Measured scan of single mutants.
Amino acid sequence: MTYKLILNGKTLKGETTTEAVDAATAEKVFKQYANDNGVDGEWTYDDATKTFTVTE
């Protein structure tokens, strides 16, 4: 399945996607991606759209 991440960081905004077997796996990938890019904030997940959002 394809999962999407929306980044609403103070210095980085954008979107990315990943292929993962489940939401938990996608979340690990996205949290590492956000961490690597210096984005740390509040996370939400919408199962209907398979979209994670992180907002600083």
Rank of each mutant, 00 (worst) to 15 (best):
M1A: 12
M1P: 07
M1L: 13
M1Q: 14
M1C: 11
M1S: 14
T2M: 13
T2F: 09
T2K: 11
T2N: 07
Y3D: 00
Y3L: 01
Y3G: 00
K4I: 13
K4N: 06
K4L: 08
K4G: 03
K4A: 05
K4H: 13
I6D: 02
I6S: 04
I6G: 02
I6T: 04
I6W: 04
I6P: 00
I6M: 06
L7N: 02
L7A: 04
L7D: 01
L7S: 03
N8Y: 12
N8K: 13
N8T: 08
G9M: 12
G9C: 10
G9H: 08
G9T: 15
K10E: 08
K10S: 11
K10Q: 11
K10A: 12
T11R: 09
T11L: 12
T11Y: 13
T11F: 14
T11E: 10
L12D: 05
L12T: 09
L12V: 13
L12I: 14
L12F: 15
L12W: 14
K13V: 11
K13L: 07
G14C: 13
G14E: 09
G14I: 15
G14M: 13
G14T: 14
G14H: 10
E15M: 13
E15Q: 12
E15G: 06
T16V: 15
T16Y: 15
T16N: 06
T16P: 03
T16W: 15
T16I: 15
T17S: 11
T17D: 05
T17W: 13
T17N: 06
T17I: 10
T18Y: 11
T18E: 04
T18A: 08
E19P: 05
E19M: 14
E19L: 13
E19D: 09
E19Q: 14
A20N: 03
A20I: 02
A20E: 04
A20M: 03
A20P: 01
V21I: 14
V21E: 12
V21C: 10
V21S: 12
V21D: 11
V21W: 13
V21G: 09
V21N: 12
D22K: 03
D22S: 07
D22H: 04
D22I: 03
D22W: 03
D22N: 09
D22F: 04
A23M: 13
A23G: 05
A23V: 12
A23T: 07
A24Y: 11
A24M: 13
A24W: 11
A24N: 08
A24G: 09
T25N: 08
T25C: 07
T25P: 02
A26G: 02
A26C: 02
A26I: 02
E27M: 15
E27W: 15
E27N: 05
E27D: 04
E27H: 11
K28R: 13
K28C: 07
K28E: 11
K28N: 07
K28Q: 12
V29K: 08
V29N: 06
V29T: 10
V29D: 04
V29P: 01
V29W: 13
F30W: 02
F30A: 01
F30K: 00
F30Q: 00
K31T: 05
K31Q: 10
K31C: 05
K31F: 06
K31G: 03
Q32V: 10
Q32A: 14
Q32T: 08
Q32M: 09
Q32L: 09
Q32S: 08
Q32C: 06
Q32I: 09
Y33L: 05
Y33T: 03
Y33V: 05
Y33P: 00
A34Y: 03
A34T: 05
A34S: 05
A34H: 01
N35D: 08
N35M: 15
N35F: 15
N35S: 15
N35R: 15
N35C: 10
N35V: 14
N37L: 15
N37G: 05
N37C: 11
N37P: 01
N37A: 15
N37R: 15
N37E: 08
G38I: 04
G38M: 07
G38D: 08
G38N: 10
V39M: 08
V39E: 03
V39P: 02
V39Q: 04
V39I: 15
D40V: 14
G41I: 01
G41N: 02
G41H: 02
G41K: 01
G41A: 02
G41W: 06
G41Y: 03
W43R: 00
W43C: 02
W43Q: 00
W43D: 00
W43Y: 02
W43H: 01
W43A: 01
T44P: 00
T44E: 10
T44K: 09
Y45S: 01
Y45A: 01
Y45E: 01
Y45P: 00
Y45K: 01
D46M: 04
D46S: 06
D46K: 04
D47R: 08
D47N: 09
D47S: 13
D47K: 10
A48S: 12
A48F: 12
A48I: 12
A48N: 12
A48D: 12
A48V: 12
A48L: 14
T49P: 02
T49C: 05
T49G: 05
T49E: 06
T49Y: 05
K50E: 03
K50L: 13
K50I: 03
T51Y: 03
T51I: 06
T51G: 02
T51V: 06
T51C: 05
T51K: 03
T51R: 03
F52N: 00
F52T: 00
F52Y: 06
F52C: 01
F52A: 00
T53W: 08
T53Q: 06
T53N: 04
T53G: 03
T53L: 06
T53Y: 11
T53A: 05
V54H: 01
V54W: 03
V54N: 02
V54S: 02
V54Y: 03
V54I: 10
T55S: 08
T55A: 05
T55F: 09
T55G: 05
T55M: 06
E56C: 05
E56H: 06
E56W: 13
E56T: 07
E56F: 10
E56M: 07
E56Q: 10
E56K: 04
